[in-house]
Simulated scan of single mutants.
Amino acid sequence: MPKVVRFHELGGPEVLKIEETATPQPGKGEVRLKVQAVGLNRAEAMFFHGNYLEQPKLPSLLGYEAAGVVEAVGPDVDRDWIGKQAAVVPSFSMNSYGLLAEEAVVPALALGEYPAKLSATEGAATWMQYLTAYGALIEIAQIRKDDFVLITAASSSVGLAAIQMVKAEGAVPITTTRTSVKKAELEALGADHVIATEEEDLVARVKEITGGKGARVIFDPVAGPFVEKLAEAAAQSGILIEYGSLSLAPTPLPLFTMFGNRMVIRAYTLFEITGDLAKLKDAKEYVYERLEDGRFQPKIAKTFPFAQTVEAYRYLESNAQVGKVVITVP
């Protein structure tokens, strides 16, 4: 019997259990994926802790992003999918589907092919990070050549995708990390500037780098009190895009700073892209093209076997990684 990861109560990674289950059968508009790799995301950790946008319905499945081979299709799904390699675009509720399993049913509309030159591990580290960055930087901010773009939590998979995207568009990535430990690696991965926020004055450094102008675009998943500093680092008529709340702390509205620099603070989630078929089509084409020609390259921080799922999420929560944590499935 295939195995699946479930949790029956909220808590840390230790609540995750590997259980046997019946082979899932795809329904209308669905496919069954023989899973080869699962990319881990902060969203899942927040989900089993009970801190995500939605509360899990217990017992709950887990997992947003996977790559594998389509082995069965449900009614009204093109049978040409059978036998194809595909990755899953996170575009659904984890209360409906969970991909951390040996076999998983997913909506056919959530499938996304990836270039054959990528491994399944890299395929599982593709859609969440690049589509998240695309929606904010290309769709909303419309970054352009020579823009200064401030990317916080830059060692995350989304942060690294944002660095690559900013560079590909001819703009200048300014990144942040808490200490200097990851500084050299971020520079090697394309960051033009790295600011260690626990060791340097963020606002002063951004102003120095930008010749006093500030960053036109700020891309932040942390929120909380640091938003006030980010607002001070924004350029006139700049935009701060918040795509997460990792701090789990109340986020103040820096109103007087906003009055002074006429900036915009914009909340954003990936579902703005995945919930619009036209936007999703454009986004997938944009990402696929750049994966194919090498401008984009997923960075894998560490892989874990399926049996070490708990250890994999503990590592994710340690913040030690630079890039994507991936679970490989036998």
Rank of each mutant, 00 (worst) to 15 (best):
T176G: 14
G159L: 02
V222D: 00
V69T: 15
L111V: 04
D192S: 07
A235G: 10
G238R: 01
E9W: 08
I209E: 06
I138D: 00
K279P: 04
E71I: 02
L230M: 02
R6V: 14
G11M: 02
K299Q: 11
I265R: 01
M1V: 03
M128D: 13
T251E: 14
Y315D: 08
A125C: 07
E200G: 12
N41Y: 09
V158L: 05
A188N: 10
F47I: 08
V329I: 10
P254I: 07
P24V: 05
E185A: 13
F296P: 06
D293C: 07
V4Y: 00
G83C: 08
A301M: 10
A307G: 15
P298M: 11
V206Q: 03
E185P: 09
E122L: 14
P90N: 05
Q55K: 13
L270I: 09
E44Y: 09
I138L: 01
S156P: 03
E65Q: 09
Y243H: 15
F92V: 10
H8V: 09
V325F: 09
A67F: 00
K299L: 15
A283Q: 05
A22S: 15
V325I: 15
K229A: 15
G63M: 03
D220T: 11
A86R: 13
T197V: 10
P75Q: 12
P75K: 13
V149D: 00
P252H: 08
G27E: 10
I151A: 00
L291E: 03
S318K: 09
A184Q: 13
